[in-house]
Design a protein around this nucleic acid. Structure first.
Length: 557
RNA sequence: AGCGAGGUAGGGCAGCCAGGAGUACCCGCCGGGCUCAUAACCCGGAGAUCGGUGGUUCAAAUCCACCCCUCGCUACCA
């Protein structure tokens, strides 16, 4: 009956304190499903697990609001940049909340709190001698009267003659370019060619001075990062670190508090990574300081693979170089990409399946389940309409949803026969086994595998019902036999209800309500014996998707 | 080009680090069963030269070398 036997370590863990972060979405456009699957969703699921396991933690994310693309979008829309950034922040935040992301706090980077942390860290880096000045040639548009980032210079590729070369790279031949090589350079803001190259001075962080620290850091977490991330980091560091600029000639952003650089702002990536701390401070200064400076705090960061070096090299270098005592990451979770020939994800072009219009196709729980089931932990995931249908209809609905429905229905209809809360030893052992693997998977941050344990539990429930035919026992009015079988199945359903909470919280809540569990469940509650509460209005927890969804998804091709 | 990751039945994904017969798993397919449940569920079966070649070994999907294919990154997009 008790499920406690092989799990009594909760007491040891209760003292853990964890900061979970998701990469901050850049809000020039609505985050798409690839952004969600690579950072916010796994971070949310992990954070919900910690919540269930009773681990003290915070889950921090927020909007990355600075940078040229946002400033330009605001200009194009004729809106004040800050207003634009804030409105995109609100939209993104709402969409993420609609995706059932259960943040402790979802903030943004353009805040006084973040500015304070950025200044504090910058000044410490400067004081410690890690900031240098670099002079570079930068394109300047005489009409817009501003510097233009390399990427926003367009023109003809000097190598292949393509008319679509950009200042940093030619998309057609793939060659890396110097913006001064571009033939007929045009400013992509005004579209004119009134460009000249001017010298400008920017500040940089001297990563080479910190390379030993960085190497030590990487060694310290090598057990806690994926193979891909570790290898990329190693090759990046082994290739020899270079200084990296942290300021830009822009208006939008935090002004640089240093003589001679007052007309420049911090480069967006710099205040974005620091934003993890800044957003925590926006949430709660006192607790934030406590979390970020307690050397026992675990810092578990989730991101897509495009963000690796920022988190494994540059961010720890900033933290180390500032010597303020902020903790460094203890675990870095990197996800690969969702790729699809048919469904498009493109934030920069503003088309395709983003998290806002994905919710028009089907509910958050469906996306959360599908994306978790297909979580690209080790390799890119080919994400097809057929695969979405398979997972939703066959796995989520037929196996799990249908099991709960058939078990609840037959139990409610035959409530007079149902008594006690017995659990046969064989079933109890199987449940404990699955639960043990589930917990172990979560401790190792393998959410896709953990979800499979739930599916396998549903298989077990379905098998028990098919083999033992409780409907026949009900007809024979064999109360003892019926209770024996159905209590096993109901225990399985309750267990599924709890295990499902990180993935599909609403379905979980519905299931658990039938066992008298309200609110956020604790994994501990599996030890308690709770009886099924019959209900004359049993509803399926999931339903199938069909033509409507297929057409809508195809529409994003 | 360099670096990284992946290539395992029709599709999807484990296994590889610590070598021991490909009975993993999911979908699909074929055959049977069941009728509590959402045309759902259960049982059985077919289906793989483990990308290729060579090497190490008593033994290789697993270790080593080279090659082929796919994807990603390469520092001013964030």
């Amino acid at each position: 009956m008790s499920l406690s036997r092989n799990r009594g370590t909760l007491g040891d863990r209760i003292k853990r304190r964890v900061i979970v972060t998701s990469a901050l979405p850049y809000i020039n456009g609505m985050p798409h499903l690839g952004n969600l699957v690579g950072s916010m969703l796994p971070a949310d699921i992990y954070s919900r697990y910690l919540q269930m396991a009773g681990v003290e933690h915070i889950f921090i994310c927020g909007s990355d609001q600075h940078g040229t693309p946002i400033e330009l979008s605001a200009i194009r829309n004729g809106i004040d940049t800050e207003k634009f950034a804030d409105s995109m922040h609100e939209r993104t935040k709402n969409a993420l909340l609609n995706m059932e992301c259960d943040f402790t706090y979802y903030g943004k980077t353009h805040t006084e709190q973040n500015k304070r942390v950025v200044y504090r860290i910058f000044e410490a880096l400067d004081r410690n001698g890690y900031i240098s000045e670099e002079e570079v040639m930068q394109a300047y548009c005489l009409l817009d009267m501003r510097f233009i980032p390399d990427r926003m210079i367009e023109g003809i590729c000097p190598y292949c003659g393509s008319a679509h070369a950009r200042g940093d790279q030619c998309d057609d031949c793939g060659r890396l370019l110097d913006p001064q090589e571009i033939v007929g350079p045009k400013c992509s803001i005004c579209g004119k060619s009134e460009i000249e190259f001017r010298k400008t001075k920017n500040l940089a962080i001297e990563l080479p001075m910190l390379s030993e620290n960085i190497k030590d850091f990487i060694r310290s977490i090598e057990q806690n990062v994926s193979k891909n991330a570790l290898n990329k980091t190693t090759s990046y560091v082994d290739a020899g670190l270079k200084s990296r600029q942290i300021t830009r000639d822009l208006k939008w952003g935090f002004k640089v508090p240093k003589k001679g650089f007052e007309d420049k702002v911090f480069y967006v990536w710099f205040d974005a990574v620091i934003g993890y701390i800044g957003i925590t401070m926006e949430w709660n200064e006192a607790l934030g300081e406590e979390y970020w400076t307690d050397t026992n705090t675990e810092l578990v960061q989730f991101m897509g693979k495009d963000n690796i070096e920022f988190h494994t090299v540059i961010w720890p270098a900033i933290l180390e170089g500032s010597s303020i005592g902020y903790i460094k990451p203890t675990r870095i979770m990197v996800y690969e990409y969702l790729i699809s020939g048919k469904i498009k994800f493109s934030k920069s072009r503003g088309v395709g399946l983003n998290i806002e219009n994905a919710l028009d196709v089907m509910g958050a729980e469906y996306w959360r389940f599908v994306l978790s089931y297909l979580l690209p932990e080790t390799s890119d995931m080919d994400f097809s309409v057929e695969l979405i249908f398979e997972v939703v209809n066959k796995i989520m609905n037929d196996k799990i949803g249908n099991l709960v429905n058939r078990a609840f229905t037959i139990s409610s209809k035959n409530r007079a026969l149902l008594s006690g809360n017995s659990l046969r030893e064989i079933t109890g052992r199987k449940i404990r086994e699955k639960l043990g693997i589930y917990r172990n998977d979560f401790e190792n941050v393998r959410m896709r595998e953990a979800l499979k344990q739930i599916v396998e539990l549903a298989d077990l429930g379905n098998e028990i019902m098919s083999v033992e035919k409780p409907w026949e026992l009900a007809k024979a009015e064999d109360a003892e036999g019926f209770s024996k079988v159905m209590n096993d199945v109901l225990h399985i359903c309750r267990c599924i209800g709890i295990m499902l909470w990180p993935y599909t919280p609403n379905a979980s809540t519905y299931i658990l309500r039938h066992f008298g569990i309200d609110g956020k469940p604790q994994i501990d509650e599996l030890q308690k014996s709770m009886e099924f509460l019959p209900d004359d209005d049993i509803k399926p927890i999931f339903s199938k998707i069909g033509e409507r969804e297929k057409n809508m998804l195809s529409g994003f091709g």
